[in-house]
Amino acid sequence: MAAQFTAGTADVKDVARLAARGVTVGYGDRTVIDGLDVTIPPGVITTIIGPNGCGKSTLLRTLSRLLRPTGGTVVLDGEDIGRLRTRDVAKKLGLLPQAPVAPDGLTVADLVARGRHPHQSWLRQWSSDDADVVRRALAMTGVADLAERPVDSLSGGQRQRVWISMTLAQGTDLLLLDEPTTYLDLAHAIDVLDLVDDLHESGRTVVMVLHDLNLATRYSDHLVVMRAGAVLAQGHPRDVITAELLHEAFGLRARVVEDPVGDRPLIVPIGRAHVRPDA
């Protein structure tokens, strides 16, 4: 029996590092997500999309243990995340919440160094290991030459790179990013998502919440489409993104066409204004 049990756990481990099993979660009396199942495939970028208020961020926060489900479990590496110590979760899973704010005057190096916190203790607050990891995180996100600058003096795109750098310094190969492109213009959004793609190329599993459907389609290997607290569809963008699905999920009339530069579908919303009569 013991062997069977172990085998089962190993199986889960191979299939998914992170999964929600029958998760119900809400705020106070309001239930946002009811009995949801989702499995995050390892080594790829998974993006959660869906209309406003459908529970995308709530799901991400539940997966990262910021919210405790009232029913069901979130499984991280085969263990119930609710039973793990906060610190042990932080060693396995890096989280970047939506629109984080650093105190005025905090330097980039100090912010990124904070990412080492789960690996430190009262007695061991800084080591040469920490310095190496932070240096690598700064270099990888291209903010090494900003190290001495205060975070509040940077542009939105640079700032977001710095926060991602902090999450990297945490040293986890599982990253959860809640709307990493919020408040960024398109050029900076692309810049940040290219960085996310780099992280995935170097072997990390990434879960994001994104608002922009075309960016989500372009940058993800796995889409989870949500509506009203439930998963409507999931899979590769090429299989998932159809005009019917967009209508069902968002109530959006759109044409799905071939992307002139990418190998993924491109969504062209129809709307009412300036649309040719043949559309």
Binding site: A109, D110, A113, R135, A139, A144
Partner: peptide, 30 residues
């Protein structure tokens, strides 16, 4: 933009000239 590894420091090398300056650490016993 950036390719990982391009800027990554050489592993286990002592001198890293153009690296970001880190806050220096101090060790007193443990």
């Amino acid at each position: 933009i950036h390719v990982p590894g391009e800027q990554a420091p050489p592993p286990a090398s002592g001198t890293e000239p153009e690296q970001a300056s880190m806050p220096p650490g101090v060790r007193l016993g443990t």
